[in-house]
Design a protein around this nucleic acid. Structure first.
Lengths: 338, 338
DNA sequence: CTGTTAGCGCTTTCAC
DNA sequence: GTGAAAGCGCTAACAG
């Protein structure tokens, strides 16, 4: 169907290997021969098959990337970062979007194995589920280098770029405590994901250190999305004894919370202080100033791809290389107690 | 290195072809034999190589997708739509992000050719550049089914899911005219992209039909992004004889414009009416009501993947199947003249 | 410098 | 039902 290397060989009057040499700039080829072959390649608009090359070399030029929600700009940034570094290194990206569904994540891993990709970069959605045998099993059997980004897996030590979410949760809470808040609520993401669980841990730790009782009704379990956050916030502020501060654990949850507050005419920070996780570009632009923990997802993406490259090139001495990034707090004033 | 089909054959005491039959559920295999082989496969955690299968069948199970900016949720939605349908049909996705850079787009096309993918779904960024020989040439020589999404290419009739941007631009402008506006500005995206060019055409058409002169200073050429939009808007509203209405041609540009307006205390729609393109989920949530043209990118993604499937399965009689989607206007009141 | 040859791991006739 | 063998398009010794 498609034109092949042997067609080119025939048309140029040379052998397969010579064409291969020209294609790969490897070994010696007489200048004249090279010119001739190149001309035939050009004329026939020949592009060699990566599939055949991969099979022959038992090595592909593709990596896999698995994210929970590609419509979330956070992961868009991560992917962009990965993609930039991958491209510089001649690697392609096979993308999987899991919608936070365990089965999709497992299937994605297996498909990537089938594709014999070089390595995988993923944000696991279920790293806290210690007893999920199928998940663990899939990862254990994969035998492909995996780099985790921004979320860890509890039951297995793996390489990755992580965010110090315990400390981030701790710092966020402490910031509010220092400002004089004591009734602080937190709205977490799905607790089967590591970031959500860790932020909550940090929150609890901070309260404990300040000898403040942890109130269950101040701990709201969201799902990282707007709608749930909106509903939870609405309920929260209808509470008689409502908190004076709220920590939201993802960009989308922040939006949902703000919607609820707007509707009820609750002012930030006068009526309710807020510290958020993740940047919401639009908020800055709209002059809604929310103090937030910035994880710099673009940079996380780049770092994870670089780490994967290091692993593939055997530049890593340890078995698992774990880089923990400390997110920074961007102060906008919404944490004040007024 | 990795375990292969012949290892499985040897371990099960059968031939390669029998293992292959088991793997593909093709041909007759005695139940007992099948069980035996399946057991060996399971025990060895064998996953066949898609690379080898692709080579052997001269057919891959991958498609390519090329977008200008993956961090924009518009394209996130498109990709999500594509991905859902692709997955249902056992197809994987190789992703390319071009940052609106021509060379990257061309390279992406060639890499996808090299990968012998089944088809390509892309949003071209340079469909208006009639004289760009290299671009045209690449596409012409590709010889892979391409489905365009949401942006067309002027110099070549291609299959795709398009948005009727001329009419959308026309309608947006007319809406404002009907409300009594006559000084209407438009902020377009990069004019080398078809949607930007077409929306501008629609705008001009509407003004002409209403016998209103087209003022060059009311036509602002942006780049689809916030920063430029912010600057352009700032300049626009400093104008002595400033317009009473503005059309913004992308979600990000809308944000940029709103930032500028906020800063200058210009109210919407009292001081400046706005009609935008694309939904900005956050605006709705924040109670900032902007009338917008909704293209439903998730649906565009699904439709484009379905179209590609139809093409691949020869369900299409025409050489080029072009589906034109009429976007809907979501009225929020920001178009009023008060 | 160039050609021959043996794979890479799988599918697919064609025999038996 | 099952196996042998050719082939998918390329790479990489090896020989010359």
């Amino acid at each position: 169907m498609s034109i092949t290397i042997s067609d080119i060989a025939r048309l140029s009057g040379v052998s397969l290997s010579t064409v291969s040499r020209v294609l790969n700039n490897s070994g010696y080829v007489k200048d004249e021969t090279r010119k001739k072959v190149e001309e035939v390649i050009r004329q026939n608009n020949f592009i060699p098959s990566a599939i055949a090359r991969n099979l022959s070399k038992s090595q592909s030029t593709t990596i896999g990337i698995i994210v929970p929600d590609i419509t979330n700009s956070y992961f868009g940034e991560v992917i962009k970062g990965v993609s930039e570094i991958a491209e510089e290194n001649g690697l392609n990206i096979i993308l999987f979007n899991t919608d936070n569904i365990l089965e999709k994540e497992i299937r994605a891993l297996n498909v990537l194995k089938e594709q014999r990709i070089r390595g995988i970069i993923m944000t696991p959605g279920f790293g806290e589920e210690k007893d999920n045998f199928k998940y663990i099993d899939t990862i254990n059997k994969l035998n492909i280098p995996i780099v985790l980004v921004s979320a860890d897996i509890k039951f297995k030590k793996m390489s990755g770029i992580f965010v110090d979410n315990i400390n981030a949760g701790f710092d966020a809470t402490n910031l509010l405590l220092k400002k004089g808040h004591s009734k602080i609520a937190i709205m977490t993401g799905i607790l089967s994901s590591e970031p959500a669980a860790h932020r909550l841990l940090g929150y609890k730790k901070a309260l404990k250190e300040s000898n403040i009782d942890i109130e269950q009704r101040y701990i709201l379990s969201g799902d990282f999305n707007m709608k749930k956050a909106y509903e939870l916030t609405k309920k929260l502020i209808e509470d008689e004894d409502r908190p004076t501060a709220l920590i939201t654990c993802s960009n989308r949850m922040t939006i949902g919370a703000i919607k609820a507050l707007k509707e009820k005419n609750i002012n930030i920070p006068e009526d309710l202080a807020i510290v958020a996780f993740d940047r919401v570009a639009l908020l800055d632009y709209l002059g809604i100033n929310i103090t937030y923990i910035d994880e710099l997802p673009l940079s996380l993406g780049k770092k994870s791809m670089n780490l994967l490259l290091d692993i593939l090139n055997n530049n890593i001495s340890e078995k698992e290389k774990r880089i923990i990034v400390k997110p920074r707090i961007i102060f906008k004033g919404s944490e004040e107690k007024i």
